[in-house]
Design a protein around this nucleic acid. Sequence first.
RNA 1: GCUCCAGUAGCUCAGUUGGAUAGAGCAACAGCCUUCUAAGCUGUGGGUCGGGCGUUCGAAUCGCUUCUGGGGCACCA
Length: 573
Amino acid sequence: MEEVKAEIAKIIYDALGNEQVSLEEIESKIEKPKDKKNGDFAYPCFNLSKVLRNSPINIANDLQSKIILNNSLSKVEALNGFLNFYLNSENIVNDVLTEIVNKGQNYGKSEEGKGINIIVEYSSPNIAKPFHLGHFRNTVLGKALYDLYEELGYNVIGINHLGDWGRQFGILIEGYRRFKDEYNLEENPLQALSDIYTRINQLAKQDESIIDIARENFKKLENGDEELLKLWKSFREISLKEYNRIYEILGSKFDSFNGEAFYNDKMQEVIDILDKKGVLKDSQGAKIVEVGDNMPPCIILKSDGTTIYATRDLAAILYRARTYDFTKCIYITATEQILHFKQVFEAAKYLVDEKYQKGLVHVSYGMIRLKTGKMSTREGNVVYINDLIEEAIKKSKDIILNKNPNIENIDTVSKQIGVGALIFNYLKSGKNKDIIFDIDETLRFDGETGPYVQYTYVRTRSILEKVGFNIEKIDISKIDLSVLNTVQEVELIKSLEKFKSIIQKAANDYEPSVLARYLIDVATLFSRFYNECSVANVEDENLKLARCILVYSTSIVIKKGLGILGIDCPEKM
RNA sequence: GCUCCAGUAGCUCAGUUGGAUAGAGCAACAGCCUUCUAAGCUGUGGGUCGGGCGUUCGAAUCGCUUCUGGGGCACCA
């Protein structure tokens, strides 16, 4: 499509015959009209007005008469001072469908990232606590970015920077010792740990000696006390087991689970380097690095001499630069950490080469709140992701049993649809938006939702099954695709053409919602086609096959697109 | 106080390298299943693009200012 833009620029340039306006200038002004009635490309003539000393309307009319179209364009029209170009749709129809059929599952893939390493750090829950909605948004975003970059050919490394170290384990260990017999650690061990943690914290409010014991516990843990280390490891395992179950459902991929504990012995080097460079300064008893006038300094050592999260993040940057030689290292966290990462990234320039420092990216997302306010484990107003998934599956099962009682694999399908609705709901709007959790809104199944897109896919499969279409047995060069000329067909094909650039944009903007909304578009255009153009009942064999190819192509794009977002497509629903 | 994000239809949101009558979904109302799954499609109504000023041939989009909501502002992560 971009080539056509350059061609149009050349055509206008030739027709204009005016040296004062450069080819580049013209090309940069060419835009895609919002309304398809105004063609596929438009050139606004307003800025020519001064140069040519004429009204934009006259200029457009004049240019229209002088323009000589080439093969890829069907017509040009002057309207309201715009020159509107219409593409020769036969070419697009043929090019797009042929490409999809030839590439199949590889349609949309790019090589631009070949040999380049990109890290996506995401999910990163604090262990010993169940997954809640906040983690969910993070995880789903990260997984989508992971796949988007993979689609562009990058070598992606997914890192789950677990919150698996810190004083809270001192207190959890104490709680565990006191109350472990009162909780059911067999059935739902993670919930039990979390309950114990809440309880011991309550108790600590009244009994300060518990804090002292906790501090002592953590110190022992840091010094490698065998018994405590064993306990800590079991907490970590219990947590990971449960998290992995959820990651499986969401399609998340991790190449490393190195969390905070992993960097425990790697922070001294950071301190030494900063000290040696002379940037480590004393301030109010703490050791800090200055990071500019408009930001508070980055604290490296607290006044009690212990490290802090910034120290750990810096150690991770150093380690990752050495281990992964990354070109980009993307951090996904909620907006509340924006300042923290600004400070850390600034301080990192004393630690790693410019290449790595420039590659650090913080992708932040808006908070999820309840109607009653911010989620808080302490207050007990938390939405656990397990409960939500269960509810989503139950709802989709009810609907399926109602609409399609004889379906096979009901459990698999209701899981795919329930989870699809959840994921899609959290990816369809921009990541910066705060979300107020509303169970009815979250579990919607019609309109702009995951199930709608999945349903569209099912319809494509259903048609192909009915016709007995087999892509392996098709020789596309023997089919006249130019018969696909209705508005519905051409618009759908044009939307399929955009797939590659959509992936590109979604990755560049760190914004999977771009892809989600695109899939809604494709699904809507397919549904219009579906309503207007019959496939199975067409008598003309060539038209039937041509339409089958369009249906098949649509199915490829939807399935791939949803897959990137972490959503499975059922064949029937 | 400083700073970041958000403010578009009753609700949830698209649309920001400035462009042609501001778009969807939900909700409401009216149609479309003897034909490939109606979780769908078509149509109707619904808008001071938070307010103001400015830049421009042209502003939801850029600048300034102001209001509202949310986040952050050194020893939590």
